[in-house]
Simulated assay, not measured.
Amino acid sequence: MKKKFYIYNIRLTTGEYLENIRIEGPLEDHFSGIAVSLFPVEDAQGKTIVLSIFHIVKADLLKIEDS
């Protein structure tokens, strides 16, 4: 079964702008409950970044990749 990776540009409350962030599955699937507030994502260079749902201001979906 192929995995789908969603590529986003994300604006954080700190003003930081993260480009080409790769997430397995849609962003909203990672916010399934109140207990989930941190989740790891991958940047364009393959480096892992841990995001907090409380710091995301805006996320623009760029494309969906099948892997």
Rank of each mutant, 00 (worst) to 15 (best):
V41L: 03
I21E: 06
F54W: 15
L27T: 14
L62S: 03
D43L: 07
V36R: 11
P26W: 04
T48Y: 03
D43H: 06
K47H: 14
A59G: 08
G25T: 08
I49Y: 03
L18K: 13
D66I: 02
K4Y: 08
I64Y: 02
I10H: 04
K58G: 03
A59V: 05
E24N: 12
M1K: 15
F31K: 10
G15C: 09
R22S: 00
P40C: 09
F39W: 11
K63Y: 05
M1D: 14
L61R: 14
V57A: 11
P40T: 10
I49D: 06
R22A: 00
V57P: 05
F39A: 08
P40I: 04
N9S: 12
K47V: 08
S52N: 15
A35L: 08
D66C: 03
S67H: 02
R22Y: 00
D60R: 14
I56D: 08
A35Y: 09
H30D: 04
L61M: 14
D66V: 06
N20P: 00
E42G: 04
E16W: 09
L62F: 04
S32R: 15
I56Q: 09
F31A: 07
I7T: 05
K63N: 00
A44D: 10
G33V: 01
L12K: 05
P26L: 00
L62G: 01
M1Q: 12
S32W: 11
S37D: 00
F54Y: 15
N20W: 07
E65K: 14
N9V: 07
G25L: 12
E24R: 11
F54S: 15
V57D: 05
A44E: 11
F39M: 09
A44K: 11
S37K: 09
G25M: 13
V50W: 04
P40A: 15
K63Q: 10
S32P: 02
I64P: 01
E65C: 14
N20Y: 12
K58R: 15
G33W: 07
I7H: 03
K58F: 02
F54G: 10
H30W: 01
S37M: 04
K2I: 10
G15H: 10
L62P: 01
E65R: 15
F31I: 07
K47M: 01
D29E: 05
I7R: 07
G33C: 05
V57M: 12
V57S: 12
G33M: 00
E16T: 11
N20T: 12
I64F: 06
L51C: 10
I56E: 09
M1L: 07
K47D: 11
L38D: 11
P40M: 12
I23N: 01
I49C: 03
K2T: 14
A59N: 09
K58Q: 10
A35K: 08
Q45I: 08
Y8A: 02
L61E: 15
R11F: 07
S37Y: 08
M1Y: 12
I23H: 02
Q45S: 13
K3W: 11
D43R: 08
Q45L: 10
L51P: 05
T48S: 00
I21T: 08
L18E: 07
